[in-house]
């Protein structure tokens, strides 16, 4: 009962098969993530318009169209671009400085045990501290102006980025490390030629988080002491218009913050990822 049936053996002739066929071209909708994202934004704008019309209170919730009008007006008379440029210039300085410091701290942490403990202790202490909470102190130290803002910006970028970078360095496969050391690479050359590119997915995600944190911090900081600074950025624009009850312009300012965020995310980071980690198969 337990014996299996003897079955005939068969040999097949291999069929000739085309080695590769072209992939069917995807439809427009499937090809462009940007198109899908734009549709999402348009839907949200529509919901906003409907909600505003139901609420019927321009002072509390101006409609999408009103906001768009205020946005267009201030865009054309150069007020909004000017404020945005001020904010962005400051943001870039703080962001770059924070990135450099994060890189230095991470390089130190990956080359010595003391450096590692320094990073993890400092990050554990300062990462949970909101940058805005340091602003009064910064104002005391650096006075009203750029230096104070850059200080809090650096604080908001440095810790999350250093932590992400360090995690990325730690995750570099042992084989790749040994390969680098095999070629006699040491110190900064080893970090730059092996560790940093190998940790690029983590570094990019850290840069993204850092960018968002920096943006938030900057707008909040400008709101905070906008009243006493003669020349404010976007935060100051929002603050000023709220004081004067131009709620549509408050919304226009907020929309500007959001738009810049979207642009940097989709043009900047997306492109960077496509050209690097996705092309290299390190990230899908």
């Amino acid at each position: 009962m337990t014996t299996t049936l003897s079955r005939p053996e068969i040999e097949y002739r291999l069929e000739a098969v085309e080695p590769s066929a072209p992939v069917a071209a995807p439809r427009l909708w499937q090809r462009h993530a940007g198109l899908r994202k734009a549709a999402i934004v348009a839907l949200l704008a529509l919901l906003w318009e409907i909600a505003a019309r139901i609420a019927g209170n321009d002072l509390l919730l101006p409609s999408f169209l009103q906001t768009a009008r205020a946005f267009a007006t201030d865009l054309l008379d150069g007020e909004l671009p000017g404020k945005a440029a001020l904010s962005l210039a400051l943001l870039l300085q703080g962001y770059l400085l924070g990135t450099l410091l994060a890189f230095a701290l991470t390089a130190l942490a990956s080359s010595s045990r003391l450096g590692r403990e320094l990073l993890s202790t400092l990050a554990a202490m300062f990462n949970p501290l909101p940058a805005i909470a340091l602003l009064p102190l910064a104002l005391l130290w650096f006075g009203l102006g750029k230096a104070s803002l850059i200080f809090v910006l650096v604080h908001s970028v440095l810790w999350p980025l250093a932590l992400a970078m360090h995690a990325g360095f730690q995750a570099v496969p042992e084989t790749l490390r040994m390969t680098g050391r095999n070629y006699g690479l040491r110190g900064l050359r080893y970090v730059l030629l092996v560790l940093a590119p190998a940790a690029l997915p983590a570094i990019l995600s850290g840069l993204r988080i850092g960018w968002a944190f920096a943006w938030r911090t900057l707008i909040a900081a400008e709101l905070f002491f906008g009243a006493s600074s003669g020349k404010g950025g976007l935060g100051w624009y929002i603050f000023q218009n709220r004081n004067e009850l131009y709620t549509d312009r408050v919304f226009a300012g907020l929309a500007c913050v959001v738009l810049i965020g979207l642009l940097v995310e989709n043009l900047g980071f997306e492109t960077l990822e496509r050209l690097t980690v996705r092309r290299w198969g390190m990230q899908r």
Partner: peptide, 18 residues
Amino acid sequence: PGPDRIAVFQEFDQLPPW
């Protein structure tokens, strides 16, 4: 370690993917 002794490892991740 030094380049006078080049190692080929078992693991496939010895090639920098970038």
